[in-house]
Amino acid sequence: MRVEIWSDIACPWCYVGKARFEKALAAFPHRGDVEVVHRSFELDPGRAKGDAQPVITMLTRKYGMSEAQAQAGEDNLGAQAAAEGLDYRTRGRDHGNTFDMHRLLHLAKERGRQSELLQALYRANFAEERSVFTEGDERLVELAVEAGLDADEVRAVLADPTAYADEVRADEAEAAQLGISGVPFVVIDRKYGVSGAQPDEVFTQALNQAWGEQTVLRLFEEGGDGGDGGAEACGPDGCAVPKS
């Protein structure tokens, strides 16, 4: 079984959703037969490299909310992350372009270290004080080496803006063809789609059903299979603010 997960390192619901999916996968009886592939999706593709801004500022501009409302949303999101055993900095984070990170994730896929690099990038962005957006390429090299990649190879990719760029754009084009407009979005064997950071039991239902069925892509939502209800996700206009 092949599971493809479209996500962005700047997406907090992708961070939470990854933990929920992995909880479901760990309990799946056929988990040894599941290949997980992480696919690229940029929430802010038009932002220039090096153009970073505080998350709270980004939220107020995208949603038109007050700083207090934006901070309350971050606090609630932090609580949901904590419920999944994840560290989450609710203050002082920044937001920026993730294209180079996606290029490195494609390198990591070729080297069999994609999941490790994705986790390192998520942790660095959401849990650590140091920025993945303002410290330059060496910060990404450091994280990639931590994930098991070769430093010189990583530097070579970062120095060549065309390296793995087509692979990132191909992922994004395929997302558009599938009608994916927000992330996380999980596609299981091209049979079922799970939109948003659904509870782990929804991922469990989708895995079990896809294992033995041949059908067209269907959406799974909390409380049933199908419909247009929605778990929280991030799209081009920003990330959903969790309800209190």
Score class of each variant (00 low, 15 high):
residue 1 M to P: 09
residue 3 V to E: 03
residue 4 E to L: 06
residue 6 W to M: 07
residue 7 S to Y: 05
residue 9 I to Q: 13
residue 9 I to G: 10
residue 10 A to N: 01
residue 10 A to M: 10
residue 10 A to R: 02
residue 11 C to S: 12
residue 13 W to E: 01
residue 14 C to V: 07
residue 16 V to C: 02
residue 16 V to H: 00
residue 17 G to Q: 09
residue 20 R to P: 05
residue 21 F to V: 10
residue 22 E to R: 03
residue 24 A to C: 03
residue 29 P to S: 12
residue 32 G to F: 13
residue 33 D to Y: 09
residue 35 E to R: 13
residue 37 V to M: 04
residue 39 R to Q: 07
residue 40 S to C: 04
residue 44 D to L: 09
residue 46 G to M: 07
residue 47 R to I: 13
residue 48 A to E: 12
residue 49 K to G: 14
residue 49 K to A: 14
residue 52 A to G: 08
residue 53 Q to D: 02
residue 54 P to D: 00
residue 57 T to E: 11
residue 58 M to S: 06
residue 59 L to W: 06
residue 60 T to W: 03
residue 60 T to D: 06
residue 64 G to P: 07
residue 65 M to R: 07
residue 65 M to D: 04
residue 66 S to G: 15
residue 67 E to I: 12
residue 67 E to Q: 12
residue 71 Q to K: 09
residue 72 A to N: 03
residue 72 A to F: 01
residue 74 E to S: 07
residue 80 Q to F: 00
residue 81 A to Q: 10
residue 83 A to C: 03
residue 86 L to I: 07
residue 91 R to T: 14
residue 92 G to Q: 00
residue 96 G to A: 14
residue 96 G to Q: 13
residue 97 N to M: 00
residue 97 N to K: 02
residue 100 D to Y: 14
residue 101 M to G: 09
residue 106 H to S: 14
residue 106 H to Q: 14
residue 111 R to V: 06
residue 113 R to V: 00
residue 113 R to H: 11
residue 114 Q to M: 03
residue 114 Q to Y: 12
residue 114 Q to G: 04
residue 117 L to D: 03
residue 119 Q to Y: 03
residue 119 Q to V: 11
residue 125 N to T: 07
residue 126 F to L: 04
residue 128 E to K: 08
residue 128 E to M: 08
residue 130 R to P: 06
residue 131 S to M: 06
residue 133 F to T: 04
residue 135 E to I: 07
residue 135 E to P: 01
residue 138 E to I: 06
residue 138 E to C: 07
residue 139 R to S: 12
residue 140 L to N: 03
residue 141 V to D: 01
residue 142 E to T: 05
residue 144 A to V: 10
residue 145 V to M: 04
residue 147 A to I: 08
residue 147 A to D: 09
residue 148 G to A: 03
residue 148 G to P: 00
residue 149 L to W: 02
residue 150 D to L: 01
residue 151 A to N: 02
residue 152 D to T: 06
residue 157 V to H: 02
residue 157 V to Y: 01
residue 158 L to N: 04
residue 160 D to T: 05
residue 161 P to W: 06
residue 161 P to K: 08
residue 163 A to K: 02
residue 163 A to F: 05
residue 168 V to C: 08
residue 171 D to I: 07
residue 172 E to F: 05
residue 173 A to E: 13
residue 173 A to Y: 10
residue 175 A to L: 10
residue 178 L to D: 02
residue 180 I to D: 05
residue 181 S to R: 09
residue 182 G to K: 15
residue 182 G to Q: 15
residue 183 V to T: 06
residue 183 V to N: 15
residue 186 V to W: 06
residue 187 V to K: 04
residue 187 V to C: 07
residue 188 I to Y: 09
residue 189 D to H: 07
residue 190 R to L: 09
residue 191 K to T: 15
residue 192 Y to G: 00
residue 195 S to D: 08
residue 196 G to R: 01
residue 198 Q to E: 11
residue 198 Q to L: 10
residue 198 Q to F: 03
residue 199 P to K: 08
residue 202 V to M: 08
residue 203 F to A: 03
residue 210 A to Q: 05
residue 213 E to K: 12
residue 215 T to P: 09
residue 220 F to E: 01
residue 221 E to K: 08
residue 222 E to G: 11
residue 223 G to M: 11
residue 224 G to T: 09
residue 224 G to W: 00
residue 229 G to W: 14
residue 231 A to S: 15
residue 232 E to I: 02
residue 236 P to K: 14
residue 237 D to W: 03
residue 239 C to N: 00
residue 240 A to S: 07
residue 240 A to R: 01
residue 240 A to G: 04
residue 240 A to D: 05
residue 242 P to A: 13
residue 243 K to A: 11
residue 243 K to L: 01
residue 244 S to V: 01
